[in-house]
């Protein structure tokens, strides 16, 4: 156990920014998915799963291809 903690401490300078960036992006995109329920295709559950489960490619695909326009709600 002690060995594990030492190992964790050794890699903390890498892990900390990585976790903050990845989690931050995932949470930011998830909030965006929930607050803007208009997508070019797919539904909310699908986009939530994509955004939360696929690391950094998921949010990218959502923002580039999935995000609907706020001003074109008629269609």
């Amino acid at each position: 156990m002690n060995n594990d903690t030492a190992l964790l401490m050794e890699y903390l300078p890498f892990l900390l920014p990585l976790i903050i960036l990845q989690l931050g992006l995932a949470i930011f995109s998830a909030i965006h998915v929930i607050r803007h329920p208009h997508y070019r295709f797919g539904n909310q559950v699908m986009w939530l799963l994509i955004v939360l489960l696929i690391q950094f490619i998921g949010p990218l695909i959502y923002f580039v291809f999935g995000r609907g326009d706020d001003n074109s709600r008629a269609n």
Partner: peptide, 21 residues
């Protein structure tokens, strides 16, 4: 406004950290 700046900064920082890690 289309979050391109945000995505570029976050993703390429992640890629930058991943290499030495």
């Amino acid at each position: 406004k289309t979050y391109k700046l945000l995505l570029v900064i976050v993703i390429f920082s992640i890629l930058g950290i991943l290499n030495p890690f």
